[in-house]
Nucleic acid binder design. Structure first.
Length: 341
DNA sequence: CGAATTTGACCCCA
DNA sequence: TGGGGTCAAATTCG
């Protein structure tokens, strides 16, 4: 796997050089490089995938709606600058699939310490929804929260909705690859739906997890409700797309609080044309050696990438622009260059 | 014994 | 008014 990744890195570097010298960049060259990069990643990730890693499936990009967004958000304020600061709490959701028979019956840690503060039976849902907030909320004022709800259809599937960003500095000095599999449910109380695995797993944070993409995340942060609800938004099959659940939003002010969205490696399988799969496997990613400090790098990138938006007033359009010139496969992680920093 | 979880009550808003 | 989200006292864990 390391070989494949190394190769991908090399190819990405070549591609980077091509970008730097756009006058001599041929479409064929880029195409070739990208094809090989994708191939390398596909191989590497398939290895990961077969390693009993929990799989995170981001929600289908085609299900964008505005369930939780005020319907009047656009229509009522059509002339407002879409990039105005919004105080909406950034929120997004993921579907976390936990492999059976691994001892991990619940959603695995996402790199943060969470403390459960409530559980609620949800109308129409077979399983209750659990509410978590950052463990360090009292001490550091971190307002990040998440909700976890088991899927009705597949009990191994958990819908995880994150709200807010972590502003805390968690105990991230733990050894990489902390294995939480096998942590047994100790309590057998009735009504205890949420496996304990969910809690107090202080993963080494994103530094040990392949980044989902700095540039991608930045774009996410540039998004507003209005943008997401534009009907013309139709990325065919991208990680970007799948990140944005229909009824959840990314607020542009996410960057202000060092929000981390890229905690998972991502890839698209050839067979998967409608959704993205994120292999969330911090336990097997030690070999990547990719230590990204997203919290420190994203603000700069945000500045860079947000520039076009301010001109075109169309983040979506900017996406296209950023992809088209090089015939980017939309499923290809946009942050490939950052990926190998 | 401090920290985390449970769980019924309470609050808010559509 | 009811459903979803949060609070906080009681309970359990380590």
């Amino acid at each position: 796997m390391n070989i494949e990744l190394k190769q991908g890195q090399e190819l990405a570097n070549q591609l980077k050089q091509q970008f730097l010298d756009t006058t001599q960049t041929s479409k064929e060259t880029c195409d070739f490089l990208l094809t090989n990069i994708l191939s390398s990643y596909e191989k590497a990730l398939s290895i990961l995938k077969s390693n009993h890693s929990p799989v995170i499936m981001l929600n289908s990009p085609h299900s964008f709606t505005s369930d939780t967004s005020p319907p009047s958000d656009i229509s009522d304020q059509p002339h407002k600058n879409v990039f105005r600061k919004r105080k909406a709490v950034p929120q997004w959701s993921e579907q976390v699939q936990v492999p059976l028979g691994t001892g991990a019956e619940g959603p695995l840690a996402d790199g943060y310490s969470w403390r459960k503060y409530g559980q609620k039976d949800i109308l129409g849902a077979n399983f209750p929804r659990a509410y978590y907030r950052c463990t360090y909320r009292p001490s550091q004022g971190c307002l990040a929260t998440k909700q976890v709800q088991k899927s009705d259809e597949d009990s191994s599937l958990h819908q995880v909705t994150y709200k807010g960003r972590h502003t805390c500095k968690q105990g991230s000095e733990l050894t990489a690859g902390v294995v939480v599999f096998g942590k047994e449910e100790k309590r057998q109380k009735k009504g205890s739906y949420e496996p304990k695995q969910e809690e107090q797993i202080q993963e080494p944070k994103v530094e040990h997890i392949i980044s989902f993409g700095t540039s991608l995340k930045t774009e996410e942060m540039e998004r507003s409700k209005e943008v997401e609800r534009l009907p013309s938004f139709s990325f065919p099959c991208t990680i970007l797309e799948s990140v944005y659940k229909k009824d959840h939003l990314f607020s542009e002010d996410m960057r202000e609080n060092n929000f981390i969205a890229g905690s998972y490696s991502s890839y698209i399988t050839p067979e998967t044309s409608e959704c993205s799969y994120l292999s969330y496997s911090p336990y097997h990613m030690d070999n990547f050696g990719i230590a990204q400090n997203l919290q420190s790098s994203e603000s700069d990138l945000t500045e860079i990438l947000s520039a076009p938006n301010s001109v075109t007033n169309s983040p979506i359009g900017d996406f296209d622009i950023s992809l088209d010139p090089v015939d980017f496969d939309p499923s290809f992680p946009l942050d490939i260059l950052e990926f190998f920093k």
